[in-house]
Design a protein around this nucleic acid. Structure first.
Length: 846
RNA sequence: GCCGAAGUGGCGGAACCGGCAGACGCGGCGGACUUAAAAUCCGUUGCCCGCGAGGGCGUGUGGGUUCGAUCCCCACCUUCGGCACCA
């Protein structure tokens, strides 16, 4: 124990800031983007919204990708790992309204704080590439891109329904919370409002977005995006309105259906409340009732409308439509279970074969006609519930000349029949909608157009960009966009006719910012264009992207869309932004809920760093479990990881020390001489190197740490013995520090250099070292232990030479006392050699 | 309702391709060191029976395939995430 007192203790809080400063001084993580001598590796972690405080979840997300970046650097790759801030967004406006400050002030202060917190992680970010999206040098290029999209017909303006809070005005979709769809700020129920909005024409890419070929993305994300895009194959069928006293008839009424084979079963039609024909089809005597229904539907919250178990409502218009296949006259209803925004906003209702139509028909006493059934079914049997199966042996009934045809074939035949008569054709429909891009918010990128009474919508000339947000902002205590009251901002002269005109006061959805930021990282200050084409060509797509799965159909979809749009305006050549994606799990509060200040369950990393140091926290976060799993925060076990680093410290600096407490301290394991011990040490070290290498590459950080712990435990057994500090020992210490370097960068550099100094070598960062190579001769074993099973139960085990053949092994096994005892005279019927891993003797039970 | 992920000791988790279930760590128990405590170190620790050698049970539940199943198949149960009248 006097030995122990001699070495300095592990003091992370002294070591860590020193190395962070040293790495910055050496410019270790400043990437030379022009260096083509090494393969490139673009590592990207989703940038953060500067909410003010880093919590442990930020570290959980960033530590492993930093380890991966470091791992790749050690493999000789030119690694670029930038960082930035997603700086536009609503919390800044809330804070601004509450504290009467400019959102910029609040945002920039938060960014400063987060920068220093992020630096305390010791991550190898290239800060020289930092992007802050609320800076004009960034959002100027949002505007530039928007103008290009406008020119290419990829952006357009349209009147449509948006979510509207009676107190706070327009809300973005993500600002509507809960199943009852209330305003996230004031709690009021959200309604729909018709507003002129900008859209990006992303539906153009629907089919292309379904193609994930060549992308290493997690299946759940691909499936979520695929479902979100919602490709649906079917047919558009044109019904015709029937003439009546109030309506001339003959107007086409188009529907989309995935089941044209059920066309003969259509017994009524339903149009959405927004359908353009509602007004002209409504009979005068039904007008009051229809109007009342429309008003009610408009006021209804979305969730009411969409709740699947809600009882169907609707009103008859007092008009009929004619079915093109059989000239049948069927009544037309308006009902809000039909959505104006999907398909054609109108459906043919086939109650026998669609559950929703069945419910509606039952409620309103409408006829139900069966047209598809199993080949051996009874066509006249009453329909008790909608039959929607699609199996091979179904046939059509009650379907004119198509009766008796197999349903699958009839589907194609009916569409062909319709097409010949100009009454329909095959159609593909998608759930995906164009991207509603306008936000009635101050703290975002101003949309660069001008409204001129004479010239209409005029794009701001590119030379006039950026359209700057005003420096001063007066919220007047409300959530209404202050830009709409800012005369200095609004009133401009038309770029075309020089007459009086008004600036657009809408800003862009902040998801625009995050949809191309990784391109900008490559040239964050470039002022002659959004990107550097040569660097983009060399460095993108991103090789490894990491972030939360909550962005599956938001940021991760928008980014793919914008990449394709940038390609189509000739800016980039790639089709996809991110080659490989990993979704890390989310760290929840100790209560199992999402960490948030309001819940008071936020774990601040600063406290933990002060107590244990960054390396312990980094390692602990990796050790907790698989990275894609996340889970509730618990600091239980952090001491074990800290202890492990202390043991590394002791092994590296005090190999000959002896601990009291171990009766065998300083003695080689029984039966081992020095030569054997050295072989054991080399074998353990090189075997660990082999698996740890695979585990870093496979993102299995928890077992990577476990294997390093195992190696440390092995070395500890040899501490104080005659082989401690010998060549094998020193090699093993070197290897363990190199393996630890990506995960615990500070302590590994400290120990690496203390050992260098002890041998008179000059300082040189461990992070400039190459990843070591496995010595396969060292890791090979001479003997192995083979478990012996009898009828699948382990009854014995035998140690045999590594190269033993099956016959010899079998002879040894059968000769063993224990096995003869268990066999009790029986002869095995079969002997299974499971690839040398195990022997299983199969005997008949007595 | 539909789609997806997951259920393993007291706890976090491991077992990568169907081959020793429980690596590694926490916690517990016992010990060494200490006047004592902390720190450190060593041993032990799935459950049940047994003094012991050993035996039985055991990966959400019930079946199945196999010499052998945490892993594959079928049917359920539970938890979490996403979508939710998309014709």
């Amino acid at each position: 124990m006097t030995e122990r007192a001699r070495i300095e203790r592990y003091r992370p809080t002294e070591i860590e800031p020193r190395w962070q400063a040293r790495w910055a001084e050496l410019g270790l993580y400043r990437t030379d983007l022009a260096d083509t001598s090494r393969p490139k590796f673009y590592a990207l972690t989703m940038y953060d919204y500067p909410s003010g405080d880093l919590h442990i979840g930020h570290w959980y997300a960033k530590t492993p990708i930093d380890a991966i970046a470091r791992f790749h650097r050690m493999h000789g790759e030119n690694v670029f790992m930038p960082i930035g801030f997603d700086a536009f967004g609503l919390p800044a406006e809330n804070a601004a309204i509450k504290n009467r400050v400019n959102p910029r002030t609040w945002t920039m202060a938060n960014i400063d704080k987060m920068r220093s917190q992020l630096r305390s992680m010791g991550a190898s970010f290239d800060w020289s590439a930092e992007v802050v999206t609320c800076e004009p040098e960034y959002y100027r290029w949002n505007q530039w891109l928007f103008l290009e999209f406008l020119k290419a017909g990829l952006a357009y303006r349209q009147k449509s329904a948006v979510d509207w809070c009676p107190n706070d005005g327009t809300l973005a979709r993500e600002q509507v919370e809960g199943t009852d769809r209330h305003c996230w700020r004031c709690g009021a129920l959200v309604e729909k409002r018709e507003l002129d909005q900008w859209y990006l024409r992303v539906t153009r890419y629907a089919d292309e977005l379904l193609n994930f070929e060549g992308l290493g993305w997690p299946d759940p994300v691909r499936i979520m995006q695929t479902n979100w895009i919602g490709r649906s194959e079917g047919a558009e069928v044109t019904f015709t309105t029937a003439p009546s006293a109030h309506h001339p008839g003959g107007a086409p009424l188009r529907v989309f259906t995935t089941r044209p084979d059920t066309l003969f079963g259509a017994t009524f039609m339903v149009v959405a409340p927004e359908h353009p024909l509602v007004a002209s089809l409504t009979a005068p005597e039904r007008k009051a009732e229809v109007d009342a229904y429309l008003a009610q539907a408009a006021a209804r919250t979305e969730i009411d409308r969409l709740a699947a178990d809600r009882e169907k409502t609707g009103v008859a218009l007092g008009a009929d439509a004619i079915n093109p296949v059989n000239e049948a006259r069927i009544p037309i209803f308006v009902a809000d279970y039909v959505l104006g925004s999907y398909g054609t906003g109108a459906i043919m209702a086939v109650p026998a074969h669609d559950e929703r139509d069945f419910d509606f028909a039952t409620r309103f006493g409408l006829p139900i006609v069966k047209v598809v059934m199993p080949a051996d079914g009874d066509p006249e049997a009453a329909v008790a519930s909608a039959f929607v199966e699609h199996s091979a042996d179904e046939v059509l009934v009650n379907s004119g000349t198509f009766s008796g045809r197999p349903a699958g074939e009839a589907l194609t035949e009916i569409v062909a029949w319709l097409a010949e008569r100009d009454a329909g054709q095959p159609t593909v429909t998608y759930r995906l909608r164009d991207w509603g891009f306008s936000r009635q918010r101050f703290w975002g990128t101003p949309i660069p157009v001008i409204h001129c009474e004479r010239c209409g919508i005029v794009p701001v000339p590119k030379g006039d960009l950026p359209v700057l947000l005003p420096d001063t902002v007066d919220y007047a205590g409300s959530g209404v966009n202050p830009l709409t009251r800012d005369a200095a901002f609004l009133n401009v002269s038309c770029p075309t006719c020089a007459g009086p005109a008004q600036r657009e006061s809408d800003t862009m959805d902040t998801f625009m910012d995050s949809s191309w930021y990784w391109f900008r990282y490559l040239s964050p200050h470039r002022d002659d264009g959004p990107i550097d084409p040569a660097l983009v060509k060399r460095w993108t797509p991103v090789d490894q992207y990491t972030g939360g799965a909550e962005h599956a159909v938001l940021h991760l979809l928008y980014s793919r869309e914008i990449t394709k749009m940038m390609r189509d305006i000739g800016l980039v050549e790639q089709d996809e932004p991110f080659l490989r994606l990993f979704n890390q799990g989310q760290i929840l509060g100790a209560d199992g809920e999402r960490m948030s200040k309001s819940r008071g369950n936020v774990q601040d990393p600063d406290d933990l760093v002060a107590r244990y140091g960054a390396d312990t926290i980094r390692l602990f976060l990796m050790f907790m479990g698989p990275w894609d799993q996340g889970g509730p925060w618990s600091s239980t076990g952090i001491g074990g990881v800290h202890r492990f680093l202390n043991r590394i410290w002791t092994l590296a600096l005090d190999p000959n020390g002896l601990e009291g407490g171990d009766p065998d301290a300083g003695k080689l394991p029984p039966g081992e001489d020095a030569a054997r011990a050295e072989r054991s040490i080399r074998m353990a070290a090189h075997r660990t190197l082999r698996v740890v290498t695979e585990e870093y590459a496979g993102f299995r950080f928890n077992t990577m740490v476990a294997h390093l712990m195992e190696l440390a435990n092995t070395l500890f057994r040899y501490r104080g013995t005659e082989v401690a500090a010998g060549p094998a020992w020193n090699e093993a210490i070197g290897l363990i520090l190199l393996m630890l370097a990506p995960a615990a960068p500070h302590i590994s550099d400290e120990l690496w250099n203390r050992r260098r100094a002890a041998s008179g070598a000059p300082e040189s960062s461990i992070h400039l070292e190459a990843w070591p190579a496995v010595d396969t001769s060292a890791s090979a074993t001479e003997t192995r232990e083979v478990p012996i099973q009898v009828n699948g139960k382990v009854r014995d085990r035998v140690t045999v030479p590594a190269g033993i053949d099956q016959a010899e092994l079998e002879r040894l096994v059968l000769a063993r006392d224990r096995i003869r005892e268990v066999l009790a005279g029986r002869t095995p019927e079969r002997v299974i050699h499971a690839g040398g891993r195990l022997v299983n003797l199969v005997v008949r039970e007595p």
